[in-house]
Amino acid sequence: MEDILYFLQQVINGLTIGSTYALIAIGYTMVYGIIGMINFAHGEIYMIGTYVTFIVIAALGMLGIANPFFLMAAALLVAVLVSCAYGFAVERVAYRPVRGSKRLIALISAIGMSIFLQNYMRLAQGSRDMAISSLIPGGWEFGLESFAVNLSYMQVIIFSVTLVCMLLLSSFISRSRLGRACRACSQDAGMARLLGINTDMIISMTFVIGAALAAVAGLLLGMYYGVVNPYIGFLAGLKAFTAAVLGGIGSIPGAMLGGLLLGVAEALTGGYLSTEYKDVVAFGLLILILLFRPSGILGKPEVEKI
């Protein structure tokens, strides 16, 4: 019985982290779906989202506002807006000028952008960890006396916010006109343009949506861990990229699934093996997927691209 509860606890922890991987992974997958390139500056957008969250919460806290839900809502709004602006700017500065040239050039440009943003944050906010105290502490415990499964309120918030974001995004993509135009662009941008769709606008929108979701992930994970530094974007970005590839890059449901799977795989490794092996397992998975099923779980086999 305790074994089962222990397993359950790992799964809950894994799904928590996995949800945020999924949110970030969507940004990778959407951008790839439309322009066929990996936005390596995406992890930094997540990092910026976390910083903005911390700054807003600290600033409002100093003004004497203590209601955690108001703080969270305000931080969410500001973090999303700021990150959207960064996402938009990244596309304009690092991608649009080199679009149409070789893939490698855009890749290097994006890596440059990533290094720039990381160091810019280091200069602006300092390279040390910043911390905030937990806004929404506590949770539920259930199980046996010898082992209780812990489900914190924050974890529940992470699941529900992620779920809402996913539902909003899915209905936007599948039902709205802009979503339809977005899908058309990802299938054949040249044709979409000749049918009167402003593909540049759609590409910008894709970056902005990805940035907004990364900011949501930044807020959630920031509040969950309570710590931020300018380097968190790198690893989170790599993990989310792995999640996107795992689920099938270019596929939005794939990114969601890949994120959750990766989170659970990591948590199980941490729970049964050793937390030190978490990253080994995550990137081992990436290598295995690339070797045996490069199109990912939900992706369609495709010879071109990558």
Partner: peptide
Amino acid sequence: ENLLVAQHM
């Protein structure tokens, strides 16, 4: 959907 996309503009 193909026809709806074409009316996007």
